[in-house]
Nucleic acid binder design. Structure first.
Lengths: 186, 186
DNA sequence: ATACAAAACTAACGTTTGTTAGTTAAAAAA
DNA sequence: TTTTTTAACTAACAAACGTTAGTTTTGTAT
């Protein structure tokens, strides 16, 4: 773990609690046990920290989705894989996920464009899986947008609940969440 | 609509886009077509704006939940009412909802305590409805926490999707969301 | 021991922040 | 018409912001 990675990691914890804008470089430095100016031996700017956190994670989602798309699975199986992808990332990188969810709009220029593009592509891929599922009769013929947003909302905010509730076993969580989201609660 | 309410309303739109910390009082003033100092003829502080937005809405949720609890309905019917409560509030106050979701942690002192208490109570009430539903066999016997967080996540982030997708009819939305969340998609 | 690189430091910069004080213009009440 | 109230203004404040420059300490390799 390089010093730079330590800084990014420390910053991500603070960002998770208060958000990017409310965390100063002096806050980050203090949490690292150093002075603000010293950070700049390792990073280019505060922006760079956000960029690393958000874009690296966005690429991970993109790559995960691409792997799922090329599998020879049914739409329903693909959705299960997507759910598992989110849970795995949540468990391993909940802090970066907070930044991706809440602070992406503070990215600048190409970083912002890249992120928005990746997110649009991701949602579009997910939407296509759902539509295909409806087409082949595996999924109820409801408004795909409602299904998409309902599942994605739950997955995207999982990081807020996981760990608060005593860190459920990951496999139990996957099973329960798949069940609740696919088959409902009734 | 008093001048103060106009300011709070304008601020809430900006908070929704960039978050409380990233919006300056000069930003708010500019959006109102006045100078920053002039705002203080109407408000006490930037904090007060946030406090009004978040706490007023939190009280609305609390009061809505209390009305649902005293109804002589089955657990499942109560959950439907909760879903409808969220959708109604989302449609009418999506900006304040953004502040409640993303900026509540920037409240101070008693305001912060009050909010956290109200949110805990709200979740606890919802949890009890779910548990009762499981007890009487109306709801599948899964981990109540997963059900609670799954539904609440979807409801809390609805404001991000509503209006982006061409403002679906509210009643259609209620019907579809109840269906997806209660009976799943399979 | 000497040299070199890495990583900390102090000091300071120009901006932006939320907010206050005091003043002025316009509208409403007397 | 005078008085009062409301709501804008200009000017300025101290504090906090992200960042830079230059210097010193620390650890490693020669």
């Amino acid at each position: 773990m390089t010093r730079k990675e330590e800084i990014v990691g420390t910053a991500s914890q603070l960002f998770k609690e208060k958000g990017y804008s409310a965390v100063s470089v002096r806050d980050i430095a203090q949490a690292m046990g150093m002075k603000a100016a010293s950070l700049y031996n390792h990073i280019e700017s505060k922006q760079e920290i956000l960029s690393i956190l958000v874009l690296d994670l966005a690429r991970e989602f993109t790559s995960g989705m691409n792997k799922i798309l090329i599998l020879d699975n049914s739409p329903l199986q693909k959705i299960e894989k997507v759910i598992e992808l989110h849970i795995d990332i949540t468990v391993n990188q909940s802090e970066a996920l907070a930044a991706l969810n809440n602070d992406w709009m503070h990215l600048e220029q190409e970083d912002l464009e890249d992120f928005v593009q990746m997110r649009e592509d991701y949602e579009e891929n997910f939407r296509k899986i759902i539509k295909e599922g409806i087409r082949v009769g595996q999924i109820q013929p409801r408004h795909p947008e409602v299904i998409l947003f309902s599942i994605l909302s739950t997955l995207r905010t999982l990081y807020l609940w996981y760990q608060k509730r005593g860190k459920l076993d990951v496999n139990v969580l996957k099973k329960d969440m798949v069940a609740v989201m696919l088959r409902g609660i009734v």
